[in-house]
Design a protein around this nucleic acid. Sequence first.
DNA 1: TCAAAAGTGTTTGGGTTACACCCATGG
DNA 2: CCATGGGTGTAACCCAAACACTTTTGA
Lengths: 215, 215
Amino acid sequence: MPFTRVEVAVLSLLEGQLCVLLIKRKEAPHKGLWGLPGGVLRIDLDATLEGAAQRVAQERLGAKLPYLKQLIAVGSKTRDPRSPWALSVVYRALIPITSIEPLPGKRIEAIRWAPAHEFDVDQKLAFDHQALARSALAATKIEIDELKLPVGFLPDTFTLTELQTLCEQLAGRALDKSSFRRKLKDRMMVEPVEGKFVGGANRPALLHRLKPNLD
Amino acid sequence: MPFTRVEVAVLSLLEGQLCVLLIKRKEAPHKGLWGLPGGVLRIDLDATLEGAAQRVAQERLGAKLPYLKQLIAVGSKTRDPRSPWALSVVYRALIPITSIEPLPGKRIEAIRWAPAHEFDVDQKLAFDHQALARSALAATKIEIDELKLPVGFLPDTFTLTELQTLCEQLAGRALDKSSFRRKLKDRMMVEPVEGKFVGGANRPALLHRLKPNLD
DNA sequence: TCAAAAGTGTTTGGGTTACACCCATGG
DNA sequence: CCATGGGTGTAACCCAAACACTTTTGA
């Protein structure tokens, strides 16, 4: 049976840039290289594959990651020098702009948010994690281009202007306010949250949340 | 390490209906039940995951399957009674209408093409293959609705009328001939094949083939 | 001459975008 | 009053579907 792991590509939006969380490896193989966080599937601990991904994220990053999505499973004889046959199931997580950066922990020397454009050129990442990160970014960019709402990049509640600004950063261009809001209303993608609002020196904005079961 | 298998959902179009190839199991567990063809990942034989899927298809069905696409990996403690933790990577294959049905072989008592609508209602399939087949059908229907060309359902060369008829069967409605052909030309999805044609009591049709690298 | 292949042109309608403009609200 | 939130109306535009029609080709 293959040596089976779970890897997690954690994406977030920092200063308007789509970034991938990389960790610096404390141990061989590839000690000192950057790579995606991951861990071995534990059949004694994990009830399901997704559960394994959640456990690994919790252990390595100290954070519970919502919106985990399985991207792909990769496996071959040569992926990992520790084993004659290594299988990895790759998950993607999106976390909010406001979330605190996880702290280095078990077997992690340091963490770093690598902007998407870094992956345009080759860099030395551990194992095949360069390719895995690239495909995670590519899959996410497709979703962005399809104008799916950036579930996971958002806090639980937000104002419509915050949502529009986030979408503008992701899309890389300005969006028309009334068209944007009309689309939200027509497709019933968000709903207002009971009674709350935030203030400034102007009319306060209503807080909204994403409606569940979007596509 | 988990008990790791590869399962293949083979889809084809029979008499205008989208069908899934099921096999009747010759051995326990679930002897006599229908299920998807599959096999154990062999780290001594398989160079990659996709290679494993090709080998399994070859062994179980006696046919080489082009256009294999990985759909998902599933794993849990309870999927397979033979093992405390079972992981399966599910592939989908599309095969042409003209292709000959594979013959029963190793550990297969019989085969059967199950129309898509059978999966609307619950039926007793081996393991979690009902859910796997459903998700393979759902993923394929999405591709059909997005009007991707039915790569894999087609023979190597075909006439445009054959292609349109196939798309009409898949879409479940009639398509306008000139609009259909205009789309093919605008998007450069097919190209004529050198010089050949088939005849009838009318003007012969040009043979075409799909252009490579369609998304 | 017929039947089907292949192609041309135009109209129509849906959907999105862009833009101008309205009122509401709290400091 | 001002800045921002929230909303309405509309014209322009794009694209795809629908329809009508012509030309080509081999039996």
